[in-house]
Design a protein around this nucleic acid. Structure first.
Lengths: 191, 191, 191, 191
DNA sequence: CATGAATGAGAGTTCATTCAT
DNA sequence: CATGAATGAACTCTCATTCAT
């Protein structure tokens, strides 16, 4: 019977990621040492290395939870024409990806400098570049460019910042999206 | 006498800050070692310690170029009533502070996680908190709150991001400000 | 019955030795990790431990292919009087032992320092000492001592070095032996 | 005054080399940890890194005491025609270089496998190759080739092996050289 | 003003080895 | 026969910092 088999076939890999995520969020990637992760988990540093090749690899695993979905979104976007509708759709979907993955995005956001050297930083940079290009495509006017960027900021940073604000998360998300769409809207629709 | 006015007295301190700024921007605060700074400057590590008490102290000196003015702005803001006009004024002035100090803001932005432990991080956090509170004061409605934040994001991140975009800086700055004010405006003015 | 005679029963042990031999030769004993051996073989590290008690044990098994025969040779030599004929015989037989086991000798040769701590190193040292003593016995004159050593070097290192030189192996071996015997000869025979 | 100034301006670099040399000889390069060197010297590991960039760098400094002179010898040899006289001269001079530097040569000899990965290993290999080529040039006959090699072995390994044998060092060296020259002689002179 | 020398603490990483399954 | 998971000890190396000169 045994509904909770005790650690049957390593859930350790997941536990490492969870602990690391926690520490990366609170202390930062660089300042979090493998010793800390291991200790907090009650295993040895060497155990971490059984499950992950390097420290960066742990972060990669964590950030892939978010990287994959976002890449798909970008791929989809690049296959579409740069119409206002597509951009609106992009913002909506991006907002959805953010939901529930805020801590991961926060790590990527707040440790940018540290990631630069790592190849995970390269991937991140590429993602940001592609997403920006996507959002900005279609209207080269300065005002439009600013609007496109601003709408993206609103969705992205809104999620990160409003996270520690009281209120129903979904409600906050939709409010944020509304504002972003409005900023965008005046650009694409002329309103 | 003295063709070089009163620049007597170590311009080394300034050169250290410039070099450090450069390296902090390109390699990040943590990843930049004092050895690197010293080498790039052609002095010894010990020399850095003659001019600055710690590594953090160098960063502090750099960030104070921006911290002081911003603090003054916040102080001013807190002495005003939370009217729409004041908020608009805040955005305008904040935008001006950003101008020319983008690299410093970028360092603070991209090294947030590293700064958390440092007391300079505390000050930064406080500044952000106060500025946010200032911007958000006066209207607790969710929609308004989002708008206030978004306007601030637009000015702040717009400056950082649009920096590597072609175009006249001042023109870009004003365009950004326009969008920010608009986002704000619909909230505060009802339009 | 059984087309494959009686090779039943794990040829894995042999495969481990072969793989290890390869890696020890190319990367050195210390620099070769059990992980590498296991990976190159497509098994787990733990599997190696099923077949061998320690890493040193693998090397021991490898070097025993050569150690036993050489020990026999030395035993034989020590039972003989230290005559010129015996020494000539020793060189000839040693040369034969070397034939085909060059890689093993090379490992022992090039990893001497690493082996020192291991008890296999002690055995090697003992072998070398006994063989040298055997070759040097009978004539304490400095010139003779040098000659005896030189003849042994010639056979031993000649085999290792000439291995990567073109030419029929057996022919090279005999040529080497000739020179060694000549060096020896002038000492023992006066020629 | 003050004939023995106490450690005036770092004789530490030299002391590190001496201690390392000792340990490399007795325990081997790989098996000697920087902790051991530091402890035996009464300094911290970090002090070693003040004076040398890496562990390999310490070995390099040690081996350069011998590498430079030998390189010069080889350079000289390569500028000469491959005559018997030149070869004799090469052996004589090589023998002289060996004198007094036996421990260094022993390290290089006994740690060959470990050095392979290091770029100091490459240099060593190159040196050996060039020296061999030099000695073997001029007569492609198998017998001659073997003789050339053998003469070199005699000088090289003779120095290493006879080091722990009683007797006046210089006398031993000359005796060794005599045998080497004789081996060579029969090849080059036809005798 | 600045350097040369050194330190203590800790980082990430790798290794041979063990053992329940 | 063999594996997956884990460990403890060690490793090389880097860093911010100190201080006598």
């Amino acid at each position: 019977m045994g509904s909770t088999p005790h650690t049957r076939r390593s859930d350790t890999r997941e536990r490492i990621q969870r602990t690391a995520l926690d520490l990366f969020v609170t202390r930062g990637y660089e300042k979090t040492s493998l010793r800390e992760i291991a200790e907090q988990l009650g295993v040895t540093k060497a155990a971490l290395y059984y499950h992950f090749k390097t420290k960066e690899d742990i972060l990669r695993a964590i950030s892939d939870h978010v990287g994959g979905p976002v890449d798909e979104l970008i791929d989809w976007g690049e296959a579409q024409p740069p119409t206002p509708e597509v951009k609106r759709e992009l913002l909506c979907r991006y907002s959805e990806k953010l939901r529930g993955a805020v801590p991961v995005f926060r790590i990527l956001q707040e440790n940018q400098a540290s990631l630069r050297t790592l190849d995970i930083g390269g991937r991140l940079r590429e993602r940001v570049t592609r997403l920006s290009r996507l959002m900005r495509a279609g209207d080269e006017a300065l005002d439009a460019q600013v609007r496109f960027s601003s709408a993206l900021f609103t969705v992205h940073f809104g999620a990160l910042v409003l996270d520690d604000v009281v209120g129903d998360p979904e409600e906050k998300r939709l409010a944020t999206l509304d504002v972003a769409l409005e900023v965008l809207g005046t650009a694409v629709a002329g309103r």
